[in-house]
């Protein structure tokens, strides 16, 4: 029960990063391998706030805003060169970005494990049988709100409409006067912003460290592969399922195998998918 609940709440954070990845994948056909590093960067910003004596909850909007700007910058300097290129180029370039960011964070913030304690205490349920850190509840709510906010932006605003049009047919959108270059920049910046928010939550709920970003990238990918690029509900559900599955294996096999599990799960899910498709005489692309 404890494990399930924890997993569910943490899973919402994974889902948030995954939704960002789906956005960039769907719109630009780029898989951002540096996704996890953006999450960790958001976490470090939040931690940095606490060293200044500011409450980490303020880290949520800050990380969102700073990462939005950072994402825009990344797009302008590097990512815009990757649109419409060989998928290998975009994978490797974002992989390079991920290493670059890891090492930069290592230099700037140090290689220590950091946590931004929000000091919100815990709630006891079921006669103290289940301990629930309040911060996890807050994180869950914030993650859902951020995802819903992003969805609202995509559905309702002019910019959102341009993003959706571009993802369906970039050339047509361009002909209709949509400035696709700006749309891509916006999509990437939005993605960075939700990653930043997810990172702020990670720093409060759990810990951040310069070299654990890749796990968030892979979690995002697993979730997107299972849930598809479309709607938000499956993303949240698979995020929660992933959180649960991780917690349970961590409990059964020991926490040291938990990360390995995430990656093996990825391999297994991809193979299963290809097997199912090949039974239907189709090839996975």
């Amino acid at each position: 029960m404890q494990l399930l609940l924890d997993g569910l709440l943490v899973g919402a954070i994974f889902a948030l990063a995954a939704y960002g990845m789906a956005l960039v994948w769907g719109v630009m056909n780029i898989i951002n391998v540096a996704q996890g590093e953006l999450v960790i960067l958001g976490g470090f910003l939040t931690w940095w706030l606490t060293t200044l004596g500011i409450h980490p909850l303020f880290g949520i909007p800050l990380a969102g805003a700073v990462l939005f700007a950072f994402g825009w910058l990344l797009y302008r300097t590097v990512v815009h060169r990757l649109v419409d290129r060989d998928l290998f180029v975009s994978l490797l370039a974002t992989f390079g970005l991920s290493i670059l960011l890891q090492q930069l964070m290592n230099q700037v913030f140090g290689a220590d494990i950091r946590n931004a304690n929000a000091g919100l205490g815990s709630t006891y349920l079921l006669g103290d049988g289940v301990v629930l850190a309040n911060i996890k509840l807050v994180a869950f709510a914030v993650a859902l709100a951020a995802a819903a906010g992003l969805l609202l932006v995509l559905r309702r605003s002019r910019a959102g409409r341009a993003i959706r049009a571009t993802s369906q047919n970039a050339r047509a959108a361009r002909l209709m006067g949509v400035r696709t270059d700006r749309v891509y920049a916006l999509a990437f910046a939005l993605n960075a912003a939700v990653c930043g928010i997810a990172g702020a939550l990670v720093a409060m709920v759990w810990v951040v460290h310069p070299f654990i970003g890749i796990t968030y990238t892979v979690r995002s990918f697993v979730i997107v592969v299972v849930a598809g690029l479309g709607n938000i509900a499956p993303v949240v559900i698979s995020g929660a399922a992933l959180g649960d599955a991780e917690n349970i294996t961590g409990f059964l096999l020991g926490a040291e195998f938990q990360t390995a599990f995430v990656f093996l799960l990825l391999v297994v899910i991809l193979l299963l998918r290809s097997y199912l498709l090949s039974r239907r005489r189709q090839v996975l692309r």
Binding site: V267, S274, L284, R285
Partner: peptide, 10 residues
């Protein structure tokens, strides 16, 4: 048997 993105990430 995987292709493209899926092979690389796998």
């Amino acid at each position: 048997r995987l292709r493209g993105h899926y092979f690389a990430i796998c």
